[in-house]
Design a protein around this nucleic acid. Sequence first.
DNA 1: GCTTTGTTCCTTTTT
DNA 2: GGAACAAAGC
Length: 773
Amino acid sequence: MEKHFTDYLAVLNEPQRNAVLHTEGPLMIIAGAGSGKTRVLTYRIAWLMQQGIEPFNILALTFTNKAAREMRQRIEQVVGHEARNLWMGTFHSIFAKILRIEGHRLGYTADFTIYDTDDAKSLIKTILNEMGLDEKVYKVSWVLSRISAAKNRLISWQEYMRNPIFLAEDTEAAKPKLGQVYKQYVQRCFKANAMDFDDLLFNTNVLFRDYLDVLHKYQHKFRYVLVDEFQDTNLAQYLITKNLAAVHQNICVVGDDAQSIYAFRGADIQNILNFAKDYPDLVTVKLEQNYRSTKRIVQVANRVIAHNRDQLHKTVWTDNEEGEPIDIIRAATDNDEGRLIASSIFELKMRHQASNADFAILYRTNAQSRTFEEALRKLGIKYKIYGGLSFYQRKEIKDLIAYFRFAVNQRDEEAFRRIINLPKRGIGESTVQKIVVAAIEHNLAIWDVLCNVEKYLGKSRIGVAIADFATMIKDFSFTIAQKDAYEAASYIAKTSGLLRELFEDKTVEGRARYDNVQELLNAIKEFTDAPDRQDKTLSAFLQEVSLLTSADETDKEDTDTVSLMTIHQAKGLEFKYVYVVGMEEDLFPSQMMLASRADLEEERRLFYVAITRAQKKLTLSYALQRYRFGNLRPCEPSRFLDELDHRHVRISHILREGFVDNTSQIRGNAASKIVAENESFLHKKMQQKAYETFLNKTTPPARPYIHQPSTHFVASNPSDLREGMRVEHAKFGFGKIIKLDSQGANRRAVILFDQVGEKTLLLNFAKLMIVEK
DNA sequence: GCTTTGTTCCTTTTT
DNA sequence: GGAACAAAGC
């Protein structure tokens, strides 16, 4: 290995090499976009191990499981099998691990549940109900984000309720009881032996603050601490790392202030800006050479970020080729935008023999993916949407996991609520109420009430059902203790009746759900069979799975796909060709963000992250009209487009379907000029629309890419449709109308789609083509 | 009680 | 455009 390592060092540039070799004392690496940050971190850890440091003395913290996994693999390539013993993972997963071991000091068992966002919201709903607060005033997501923000700033409910500023803020927002809700929420979680995501960080801080022996243990254990994406740490995370590194002082943080995009979840860019104050003998290394992108992309990116006020000075540069100008495409509507991007991808694939995987479409919000999906599908280009609903968020999966959770931890209230009447056993909402009330009245756990129903709820038919349920859970609990995860899981899936219920559902969707459950069981089998796994219990599986996200799913299917994702998800990735779409004012920058200058700066950093993903070619696009909540809204181009260095930009002005006007230059206030020009165009379009409405007709949508045989025609009127007709829907594909209703303003059809199964649609005739009568 | 029909509200971004 | 809920209908 020794011989090898010199070879590894040889490929690094000087600052990179310095960052790898400077192992003792605090180090801050400012890593510009595309500057080889991961490589430096990888080699640094490999170098430490090369120096004889034991892997279990090294702690490396990342923000995503994916980043941790990739880094571990790359280290393994350099140092071999030993890399498995590194303490490497996300903040949340590492501290969950520590809390499993030490949490008993705070009153949690090793089997504590991790509540996901759905659990947290559901609990807050329950609390609001019990407190008689209006959900319309105390919006669940608002309450949760407020509590989350407090925890991330290490403010306990006691401090929250004592603090006059918070109180004043909440009173002003007409939500004076928020402190009470916070208190209830924390106590309820504790009673359920559960922690939410924020608790994992909050409680670790409490643990280190109140139990110095625990702190000392880990301080001495972790001789070297590394933090990736340091600009995205919040106070809770920062204090943990600071505490852990306090003895050895070997803390290495890597980050880029220009890529700080997580303030909304408590990240504080000041952590990186002020780091030098906490460590006077700090050494700083700047990685400024970009190996990823063309000169033009780098220059445009620099120009964007230069507008920010708070920044660490650095100059990102590159030796790469000049490259093509950045394209700006403006489309008339969002659907046009989708078609234009899709055909652009099609063309580039042909011209450069590019593969689908070379392309990415990045947007600000998940909801924007729709038009691009449709357009890509029409051209037969394979794509994959990242984010959205993950496998583990599907109902059938969550249901079964709730069984596992409750069998492992009988205090888990949210799991209890989920499964008590599933499959149906006649225990409805009102009975659950009674159980919860009885538990509170007698100051008992819900589980104690379940085990002694007769005593607390009297004799009844439902009482028998509840007793049966409790017996079943006891049986599951026993099985989990005796058997490995896979055996226990299959037993529970079968015995609970969940699997049977899904099996009996013969619809296409029911099949899919059954298959999903089988897939979950497969995943558990893989977990159980992993060679160097020590803890094979179902409880261990739950711990691992609760911190997974959709980005962590290993993709066994086709990998040659165009990637569609939000900009946040694109961080750390690169593609040859990148499309940043929806560059419209109020969308990007998001209207909700724009309360302050700091917020605008964060949006600008987000834009920076988006454009620095591109290696060869960058295209920015926006629509002048967009469907929002079913309404067509005129849009203005994003102010960010004005901030670009226009020497490197080429604008394509799409006046009308299929007609492109290329202008290579714009001067002055580009945005306002474009809006003025397009107003007359929009006006004409709207007039046309009004005329069509007058004729009580919808225009057949323009379809430049004709793939349908000529027998297709668009249903322009409900009376064109009959039951039994074969149709094609823009989104769901081919299907057969099995039922048609035509009452009231909304006409609906129940259609059996070949791929999707049965679907009830509020008919949008422009999206329905008749294939055969 | 369950299914069908009508209405409302929604949209940041994620561990 | 569609999820989630509410109301109406069987």
